[in-house]
Design a protein around this nucleic acid. Structure first.
Lengths: 217, 217
DNA sequence: CTCGTATGTCTAGCGGTGCTAGAGTTCGGG
DNA sequence: CCCGAACTCTAGCACCGCTAGACATACGAG
């Protein structure tokens, strides 16, 4: 039986190799350069082996995107620290209103603002650091399901990371909705900036303004 | 000389035909279906004539996108009416601080909110009504310059339409920056919703929340 | 150790893409 | 009427994602 295990290990190894190579190629030359032929050449196999691991190119993109979601979630967790918000793993997630809204007093507002700013900065930094990865996650068609029961764990985890931090500042709004909107704003900022639609210089000022709008009141 | 004029007219006519056909095809079957061959067949010419009008497919997408920007600008203008904001054409545009910030009193706040809401709704409606057009404008590579001196007039006009309405509610923030951020949020909302990243049901509630965040204070 | 088989990989090729060179035709001006 | 210029089309390039079928390799049974 050991021989089968060895083969399976090698297969898994090659699987990872494909994903890693696709990611590197995309990050260094853009997704347009990621063709099945080039990819096959890089991993030193012929194209058909790709199709023994993935149903098609879309699924390869999806695999890269999945890595991205996991890393993004980790980056956001790291940015806000294990601090005040509902921590990960200490329950099924915060029910709406556990440390209840209406916390718009002057006291801890500054701390909240700092945490949201750190979160947002982490998001923008991640996108800037891994543009091709971000494209795989959001721009390209990766065939991943989102707000759905089939949504893969890393995606849920990413959203949860946002939710945990933002729940505290959502005020009288439903935290889920609040998070969706804030996330959309971050995504819009990233997208338009990356596409050259916004002057690149004022990126941090725009982020400041956004965080302001979502942390006051 | 009349013959030359006639030819030029016919050429212009064919030019418009190409753009219109590309747009229809994209709107009915998606941009993937817009290939030079299909396009050529639809206009009843061979592919090479396309290249006598446009440098390549990207430029065709760009032409469609340009139409889109003009229509989007018009839709937003119509939505806010010729009302309170700085009207179009009555000067080179409002300088920052002409009817000065700090207007966060309770009085006209409601009216401002309504106008911003109408503007945002017009934007979202436009994107929903013309998904392929919106893709050409923002998702696809149309080769159009944006925040640049080479930015085509329709793009400037679209941004100006946003700016005119938002200047009044930007508070102590720079109106240009405020507009960029708000626009980004709208774009993010549209993008994520269209990609199935957000549950489609709560679209209007999300929009409400966004408008709230940008009109209070 | 040998052999049949089963697994795995590669070569070759399909229909499609954006784009272009050069042949062919049409049509206006002298 | 005929020549030349302007224009269009046929044919083809290199590349794409993807797949069928030939080929080799390595395993397990006798």
């Amino acid at each position: 039986m050991s021989v089968q295990e060895r083969k399976e290990r090698e297969r898994a190894r090659r699987h990872r190799l494909i994903v890693a190579t696709a990611r590197e190629l995309a990050e260094s030359q853009g997704w347009d350069a990621v063709t099945t032929r080039r990819l096959a050449e890089r991993i030193e196999y012929s194209q058909p082996v790709l199709y023994s691991h993935f149903r098609g190119k879309r699924e390869i993109v999806g695999a890269v995107a999945l890595e991205g979601f996991a890393e993004l979630a980790a980056a956001m967790r790291a940015a806000v620290g294990g601090g005040t918000g509902a921590g990960p793993g200490d329950g099924p997630g915060p029910g709406p209103g556990d440390d209840s809204g209406a916390g718009q007093g002057a006291g801890p507002g500054g701390r909240d603002r700092a945490r949201v700013a750190a979160l947002a900065q982490a998001y923008i930094d991640f996108a800037g650091r891994n543009p091709a990865l971000y494209d795989a996650m959001f721009l390209l068609d990766s065939g991943l399901a989102f707000a759905d029961e089939a949504t893969p764990p890393p995606l849920r985890e990413g959203f949860q990371a946002l939710l945990d931090t933002l729940t505290g500042v959502s005020g009288d709004a439903e935290p889920g909705l609040f998070t969706e909107v804030f996330w959309s704003c971050l995504h819009g900022l990233v997208t338009l900036t990356r596409a050259g639609r916004l002057p690149p210089g004022d990126a941090s000022r725009r982020l400041d303004l956004l965080v302001d709008r979502f942390t006051r009141a």
